[in-house]
Amino acid sequence: MKTRRDMLKSAALMPMLLLASTSCSKPPQIKDATFEDTVKILLDDLFPKTDTLPSSSQLNILDYINRVLHSKFTSDDDKLFLKNGATWLNESAVERFDRSFHLLDSKQRGLVIEAILLKRWGESFIISLSSYYFEALLGEPIYGSNIDMVGWKWLNHIGGKPQPTKALF
């Protein structure tokens, strides 16, 4: 059942879909950066390791993102936008520092992130990736990243019962 809360969720996705389907220029090939290289280090920048929260790498967030990319429950538009977003991020990094995003130092990466957040596609890409990060960290442990309920413990959250016995994807 769609509720008013769900409508907000749909509304948040709309700009993303629009960008995915109307992007006018073919993204340039970034030969020395894979999707995984780019997203792995971007996730660590967006969600740094703390005393209570392991790094995105330690939580296998990238594995979850890859499951999203291969899931029938993710629309083709959303999959394309995630991939395009990583490519466009690299394009921005090359434009500014002549190197792919994952080869930049921390300060340079921060400047690239700040720059893309000023663009509509960039903001939508960061929101999209962050949303999937939250799904992984704060979703059911059965999906593989909320290891020992670390995300729930971090925010004093208690999951609902009964818990699922099988992941959706």
Binding site: G160, Q163, P164, L168
Partner: peptide, 14 residues
């Protein structure tokens, strides 16, 4: 179940 991803983030019942 109370699978937040399946119920609230994907539309499994529609």
């Amino acid at each position: 179940s109370k699978d937040e991803i399946a119920v609230c983030r994907r539309d499994i019942y529609t």
